[in-house]
């Protein structure tokens, strides 16, 4: 044996090539998304207090528990190790008002994991983004509580009685917040959506780690900004693109929700079409419906369009065009 000779009757790994794999795993990708959401979660806790932390803990724990129980009930393998349920729970909390009753949040977790994800076959099979679908479900079921916003603890205007999000203020004609406050996150809104700064930091991390490509966030935000400007309230080309880009759930939607692998297109061309659709729909919802915000529904609608987009953006066959 010390001569480097071995009796090779243990070569069990005779297999078809390739014999090496990249270091990227589903679990690692999900872990990267969790890491990328730390700044936004921290900002949410900073602005909305420990209640936000409690909300995050409850949705994450309940999503993981529902994932475990559903898989067990369906007699399937346990998949909580891939961390995708943690991501769903985290994203759900960040898309809910910080003071939402916890039992409502748990119902949201149930809807996201059991109905949207596992009943369609689990990871990779859902046709809607689970966290967004759950949010939409909660808005329909508990409209008032889902639109009751908390004032940031750091907010200066202490005399405010009913607090409004920037988009709510825009719709109702209230006073619009400072753009700097909107960039930092010192405004009303869902737990993790208010701080554009924290979300952008997370987005840069995802880009640097190669988890997402720039196409969906940049095209989504760019298209939304462009259409916000074109379709201004005071006539064509009068809108404030910066306000719309920083307001509501656009940042978290463009960076974290629309980029969900399972519910977004496969090719770069498809991603651009999908993201542009998200951007246009978001502004149309904000401008021409009675809802102040349209990011969730824009992304959910485009989620449904993904199979069609995928079909029409198939890459051209290699050698398919006459080129001799």
């Amino acid at each position: 044996m010390d001569k480097g000779e071995y009796v090779l009757d243990n070569l069990i790994n005779v297999s078809s090539s390739p014999h090496i794999r990249s270091g990227v795993t589903t679990r690692r990708l999900m872990l990267d998304v969790i890491i990328a959401l730390i700044p936004a979660s921290a900002a949410g806790i900073y602005f909305f207090g420990l209640r936000a932390a409690l909300l995050i803990a409850v949705t994450v724990a309940s999503c993981v528990l529902f994932e475990y129980l559903t898989r067990k009930a369906l007699k399937r393998s346990n998949t909580i190790g891939d961390l995708s349920a943690v991501v769903t729970g985290l994203l759900l909390a960040l898309n809910l008002p910080p003071e939402l009753p916890l039992w409502m949040a748990i119902i949201g977790s149930f809807f996201a994991i059991v109905i949207v994800k596992q009943l369609f076959g689990g990871i990779g099979q859902n046709f809607l983004n689970p966290a967004l679908a759950a949010r939409a479900f909660l808005v329909i079921s508990y409209g008032t509580r889902m639109t009751t916003w908390t004032q940031p603890s750091t907010y200066a205007a202490a005399d405010a009685v009913s607090f409004a999000t920037p988009l709510g203020a825009l719709k109702e004609g209230g006073q619009l917040p400072d753009l700097i406050d909107m960039f930092i996150g010192n405004i009303g809104g869902s737990t993790g959506e208010t701080s554009a700064l924290a979300l952008i930091i997370g987005g840069i991390y995802l880009l640097a780690r190669g988890v997402i490509t720039w196409h969906i966030p940049v095209v989504y935000i760019g298209t939304a900004g462009l259409f916000a400007w074109i379709l201004g309230r005071d006539g064509l080309l009068t809108g404030n693109p910066l306000f719309h880009v920083l307001a509501g759930g656009l940042m978290i939607g463009a960076i974290f929700m629309a980029t969900d692998y399972t519910t977004s297109p496969m090719t770069v061309k498809g991603m651009v079409i999908y993201a542009a659709g998200c951007g246009i729909l978001t502004i149309l919802f904000r401008m021409y419906t009675n809802m102040p915000e349209g990011v969730s529904y824009a992304i959910l609608l485009m989620n449904v369009a993904v199979p069609i987009i995928d079909r029409f953006t198939k890459p051209g066959r290699f050698g398919g065009a006459a080129n001799v």
């Binding site: 480097g4 090779l8 243990n10 297999s15 090539s17 014999h19």
Partner: peptide, 28 residues
């Protein structure tokens, strides 16, 4: 392999060719 000092540890896989398209062998 013997001419290259032999195995340094018990091999788990033997490949003829590269790791991407080579053929794995059942015996040396």
């Amino acid at each position: 392999i013997g001419s290259c000092g032999g195995y340094s540890s018990e091999p788990g896989k033997l490949i003829m060719g590269g790791p991407m398209m080579g053929v794995s062998l059942y015996s040396d």
